[in-house]
Design a protein around this nucleic acid. Structure first.
Length: 257
DNA sequence: ATGGCTACTCCTAGTAGA
């Protein structure tokens, strides 16, 4: 089973790329973030034509999440239980082949100490509470998406420059560790200890080609899935060429039970 | 130190991303 996560930065801008990529990779499940489109305008047809079921919740301009899947979803959830009526679209979950797949787009946080930063930390607490209340760490649980946290210094191209900054601050890293402590493993780190593995590069200043990146998109696995995880790949090819997203997809291969 | 790209929007400037 191939499960991918990709912050697509506008699904409508990225449809040609997404189509090509789906055709070449054929993941079973694709978790997308920052679709930036209201549900009425979601580009269903080209994705259906490739055989994908689409589950999504979006809003105008910002945020928005979707799950594309070769099999239909079961038990779809499109918000955190304690999300308010106007809460940003940052959460969607479904069950695929017995695996509970939770797709998240964590808040960016803007600047350490800002209101948005406080919202980010609170959002992480609510996600952890959701797992406590609704999840089973002994079950098959996969949490993936854009976490907007680089968990350790080896996930940062210049740890000195980023020290204490947004995406790298100690409270953010603690919030991420609190998720892991529920009973999840960082799939990529389980298999690849080396530095220099990034999933996001700034559009500015030729950051991608200079290797100025951060690893902020993750696939987290409960122990029963972690034991079956064969491979995790960051698809840097998808960050190259014309009109890329600023994020690369992460693809995990899970062996059949 | 300078947010130097990109995408969005009741759009040609301001906001947000990370």
């Amino acid at each position: 089973m191939l499960v991918a996560t990709w912050n697509i930065n506008s699904i409508r801008m990225r449809i040609p790329r997404l189509q090509q990529w789906l055709e070449s990779k054929r993941p079973d499940v694709v978790c997308l973030q920052e679709t930036k489109v209201v549900d009425d305008d979601f580009p269903l047809e080209p994705l259906r034509a490739l055989g994908y079921h689409c589950s999504y919740r979006g809003e105008k301009s910002y945020n928005g999440v979707a799950i594309l899947s070769l099999a239909p979803p079961a038990d779809l959830e499109t918000r955190l239980p304690d999300d308010g009526a106007n809460a940003p679209c940052r959460f969607i979950a479904g069950t695929f082949g017995g695996v509970r797949i939770i797709n998240i787009y964590a808040p960016n946080g803007s600047e350490v100490g800002s209101d948005k930063y406080a919202f980010k930390l609170e959002w992480y607490k609510r996600l952890r509470r959701y797992l406590d209340d609704r999840g089973d760490p002994q079950g098959q649980v996969l949490v993936c998406g854009d976490f907007n946290v680089a968990p350790e210094d080896r996930d940062v191209w210049d740890p000195g420059k980023w020290s204490g900054q947004i995406l790298c601050s100690a409270p953010e890293r603690n919030a991420f560790r609190e998720l892991l402590a529920w009973g999840l493993s960082d799939a990529l780190r389980m298999l690849c200890p080396e530095g220099g593995l990034y999933t996001w590069w700034d559009y500015r200043g030729g950051a991608f080609h200079r290797g100025w990146g951060l690893r902020i998109d993750h696939v987290l696995l409960s122990s029963s899935l972690a034991r079956r995880c064969l491979q995790v790949e960051i698809d840097r090819e998808a960050r190259k060429g014309e009109k890329p997203s600023d994020h690369a997809p992460v693809i995990a291969t899970i062996d059949e039970p």
